[in-house]
């Protein structure tokens, strides 16, 4: 699936984002994140809550909260740097070229607008269609995201829909203008497992039909299995490993990835209820206001070496198409 000869659709380079809370120390949420996405590719971002993955999603659309600042780096989308574009151009990109599927479908739909009109609003803001064409477009979209009776769904309000249906509406909004890139930020974490699978199937189908690239974000490795082509593992504001999904699940490189995958797969096999105690990674994520100089996972890592606490590990490439920031995979000359 991965075809590097393709021109990159999105290139994030050394992105740094810091939150400046009204009271308290600034927090570096993203500390030099680099990531490339090709057209039509599904890239998964895996990480615990608080690792900066949602900040990355908002930063890509330049929709960070006012107290957050992009301090460094660049986001090239089809060669244009989004960070230097004026708001007017960004508005044209949002929804039309890059779309964000919101996190919680229960909150992401306007309670006083019908499902159909909310999809219609997206078409209206980007495409020159008349009322009739817009309505037809919405009905087609609703059918595409799996509603068999789009006419009825069109005029229902969000509170009349189930969680899965709301998420489908949100997806219909996101794909309405056939964006080249979809960002799904924990798009299924509010849904139960069988609905999660349906949504993943729907997203795969959209990608197959329209060649849409998808950046999927989740804390659950299982979400990406059979869905993502490549995965990036984030820890404390940095990407520690980028590899194909097969590598991540088969031979994960970074000790953190290994721990995550072990936990995720063991809970699938044994079932959460049976095991007396859920497997955990010992220790806590580092305090974001005072990050360690060296590898951020070092305090919790069971394979740590002397060098790990002194320097941040550079990127090594122990296998084709697998990049990892860990001294296990390279010489560490001091």
């Amino acid at each position: 699936m991965v075809d590097n000869s393709n021109k990159y659709l999105l290139q994030v380079h050394e992105l740094k984002v810091t939150y400046f809370p009204a009271n308290g120390d600034p927090v570096r949420a993203l500390d030099g994140v680099s990531l490339d996405i090709c057209s039509g590719e599904v890239v998964g971002i895996l990480g615990e809550s608080g690792c900066g993955k949602s900040t990355l999603a908002s930063a890509l659309l330049k929709m960070l909260p006012p107290q957050a600042k992009c301090e460094d780096g660049s986001i090239l989308f089809r060669g244009r740097d989004l960070l230097s574009l004026p708001e007017r151009d960004l508005r044209a990109i949002r929804g039309q070229e890059i779309s964000l599927i919101p996190q919680d479908p229960a909150l992401a739909l306007n309670p006083v607008m019908t499902a159909g009109s909310q999809v219609s609003e997206v078409l209206r803001s980007h495409l020159p269609l008349n009322t009739q064409q817009r309505r037809q477009g919405v009905l087609d979209l609703l059918r595409e995201v799996g509603f068999n009776e789009p006419q009825e769904i069109y005029s229902t309000y969000p509170h009349q829909l189930s969680g899965g249906q709301r998420q489908r509406i949100a997806i219909a909004q996101a794909v309405a203008c056939r964006p080249a890139l979809l960002i799904a930020d924990e798009a299924t974490s509010e849904l139960d497992v069988s609905l999660q699978a349906e949504i993943v199937t729907l997203l795969s189908q959209i990608r197959r039909q329209h060649g849409t690239a998808i950046l999927a974000i989740s804390h659950d490795p299982v979400f990406f299995a059979g869905f993502a082509d490549r995965m990036a593992v984030m820890y404390a504001g940095r990407i520690v490993e980028v590899a194909s999904t097969d590598v991540i699940f088969g031979r994960p490189l970074h000790p953190y990835t290994q721990a995550l995958v072990r936990i995720a797969t063991s809970s699938v096999v044994t079932g959460a209820a049976k095991s007396a105690r859920l497997p955990v990674i010992d220790g806590e994520t580092p305090n974001p206001t005072s990050l360690p100089v060296g590898c951020r996972f070092e305090p919790r890592c069971c394979e740590r070496m002397d060098v790990c606490s002194r320097r941040y590990p550079p990127e090594f490439m122990p296998a084709p198409l697998a990049n990892v920031n860990c001294f296990k995979y390279g010489e560490h000359v001091d």
């Binding site: 964000l100 919101p102 992401a108 739909l109 607008m113 803001s125 980007h126 949100a170 909004q173």
Partner: peptide, 29 residues
Amino acid sequence: DAPYVHAARGFGIRRARLLFRHALSAAAN
């Protein structure tokens, strides 16, 4: 500040439209 207005902004809906169609109708209650 509601998530649905934020989401609508993410779909590239114009500020004026956000204000008068999306936010005002929710604030009307």
